[in-house]
Amino acid sequence: MFVNCDTPKILKNGDFDYVSQNKNNNYQSVVRYRCNEPYYHLVTNTGSDTYTCSPQGSWKDQNGEEEIPSCLPVCGLPDSPILEIQRIIGGKDAPPGSFPWQAMTVISGRAGGALLGDRWILTAAHTVFPKGQSDPEETQTLEQVAEKAEIFLGHTVVTELFKLGNRPVRRLFVHPDYNPNDEHNFDGDIALIELRDPVTLGPDVLPVCLPDPGNSSFYVPGWMGYASGFGVEKNILANKLKYAPIPVASRVLCQDWLQGKKINRRDPVFTANMFCAGSPNEGKDTCQGDSGGALTVRDPATQRWVATGIVSWGIGCGKGYIPTPL
């Protein structure tokens, strides 16, 4: 009896190779699935990546299962990571492939974001619902905002981002603690953007990792993180992605520094859900247009880049600490 299993199932973001001597789809032929490395890794349901053409005319693994593996995104391993501490405000042009999770969002204005997985963008809630828009006629639903939102990924030059095109948004989620009507309190300044279609990962588009729950080592004062963005530099919007090393600051020193500082003539609110980055004596900072971008650190244990916070608010540009939501 002649048995043919037809072409093996297509693996998204991967492929298969014939490993049997008879490289065809007939009985007892063997194939092995693989992912497009290093941007995806193989996840199997039964522990097997090898499938054999069975007497029943279907491809089965060693456990008799027909379901094929999946290719999941690899996070936090850029092709060209920033390795040295170098001198946003006072920042430098980011080399291609160094911050491949960087997104540029245009919702209520230009802002930043960080790719998580292959279809989620982490950003600040105030880039979705800006502070101070209490006029009911100005208020839009999340669905209305999602329809107008523009998301750009895949390049370090703004003009090239526009050429690559907008990534349509499916849904928006804003942290329930965020209050757009309180201009002095940025608690819960976190939002998630779900893209309509997953992006294809590669050297210029790669997600950043999230920290393990309960890991507080990245928030020790002096721990060096990196901020990146397309924000204001020398009073004009940057055309190139900038980055700057910004250390985690002492919570006590940051709180003392904030005393007497005003936002619209009122004291800013610094909550337990925030930490500070930067220094009052350094000129490295983020500015308008950088909001929503991630503060990232390199985990020495895994060598992966991790998003530890979101650029949220500050007092001026290049003038001091950056309070950042956890």
Rank of each mutant, 00 (worst) to 15 (best):
S70I: 00
F129P: 09
S217P: 03
G293E: 01
G293V: 09
F218G: 13
W257S: 04
D187M: 07
G154E: 02
L164T: 06
C209F: 03
N13R: 08
V158L: 03
K131L: 15
V157C: 07
P207Q: 06
V145I: 15
Q255F: 01
D17Y: 00
A124S: 14
G318N: 01
L115F: 12
G309A: 06
T123A: 14
E147G: 12
W257M: 13
S29C: 02
R298G: 13
I315H: 11
V199P: 08
N281C: 00
P180I: 03
I236H: 12
I322P: 03
P247T: 14
T141K: 13
H41C: 09
E150A: 14
W101I: 01
E138D: 06
S108N: 12
D49H: 06
P38C: 11
P198S: 07
G318P: 10
Y219M: 09
D256Y: 12
P8W: 05
G14S: 14
L164A: 07
D197I: 08
K242L: 15
L172Y: 11
G229R: 03
L77T: 11
E137C: 10
W101N: 00
K262P: 06
I82D: 04
S312W: 07
T156L: 04
G132E: 04
I85Y: 10
D61G: 06
K23A: 03
K23V: 04
R266F: 15
P176E: 10
L172A: 11
D177E: 12
L295A: 12
G320I: 11
A249Q: 02
V31R: 13
K234V: 13
S250Y: 00
P8F: 01
P247C: 05
D17R: 12
G278N: 11
D189S: 09
L295V: 12
D93Y: 11
Q288L: 14
R167K: 10
V220C: 08
G132F: 03
V306W: 08
D212R: 15
C53M: 07
M104I: 05
M104Y: 04
N63C: 02
E194P: 04
P198D: 08
T156I: 13
E138H: 04
E150S: 13
S48K: 09
P8G: 03
I263R: 11
R298D: 07
D290I: 07
G14I: 14
D182E: 12
N22G: 14
L116F: 13
T127L: 03
D177K: 13
I315V: 15
P247D: 10
I322T: 00
P100S: 08
L77H: 13
P78L: 08
G97W: 13
Q102C: 07
V74I: 10
D182K: 01
P213G: 11
K92E: 14
G154V: 11
P130G: 12
V31W: 09
T286H: 09
L153P: 04
T159F: 05
P81V: 08
N281K: 15
G154C: 05
Y18Q: 04
N63D: 10
F275C: 09
L83I: 14
F162M: 12
Q21L: 02
E183K: 02
W120C: 00
D290V: 08
S216A: 14
T44D: 06
S98H: 13
F129W: 07
R32W: 02
L295K: 01
V145G: 01
